[in-house]
Amino acid sequence: MRFQDAAKDGRAVVYAAIQADPLVARAAELLSQATLGERILARAVMNGESTDADRWRRIFPSLFSSASAERAVEILAVSLAVADRGEQVRSQVRGAIVEELTARLLARRASPAAVRRERRILFDGVPAEIHPYDVTVEAAGAGEAFDCKWGARGINADVLHQLDDARTHALDEDEPLNVAIVVFDAERSCRVRLDAQTAPHAQTRLVAIEQLDTLAGPRQ
């Protein structure tokens, strides 16, 4: 099993520009320190129709009267900046934020150099997948591959097959590879989505919005 940079095709070039947007890094940094409530605020605002900050402060009153109110103010501002983008860009930025957030949380427990983005995983005698993995942890004997989604609806058969295929091919080479899907949405919604999937996912870990901080904890 070996990891490799994804091909720099047109999609990769366009998406790299989105990933490099300072707004993505700012949002991911704030969300890496956020409480669950603050992450729900970000999800609602980035999904929302209104761009009136005062309205959102009234919808989340407990966050703006708490000890971490200053962070909530910053999260609201960055979320409104995302919401202010056009629909297509907003969607791409949200996806990039979940990937960057995942990478930052993983880098708290793995060597930052081992946490990589947009990588393919190659196995002997197996045709390579076209789509790269969003985030990988490339540690000898302890590899990990993550697919990241903004919402539960992003969970689909292709993603589940790709993750499980990688895991089983790695096992064939006696290389343990943990696979997970990270979703910036409630576990309840993710479970509903997963329950309807026939693609193999019993060995794919779900990291929903409630469990994001576990990414920074021991490898699972």
Partner: peptide, 11 residues
């Protein structure tokens, strides 16, 4: 459909 209940329950 997923976001509204999270927001409402948080409040």
């Amino acid at each position: 459909l997923s976001t509204l209940p999270q927001v409402v329950l948080l409040a």
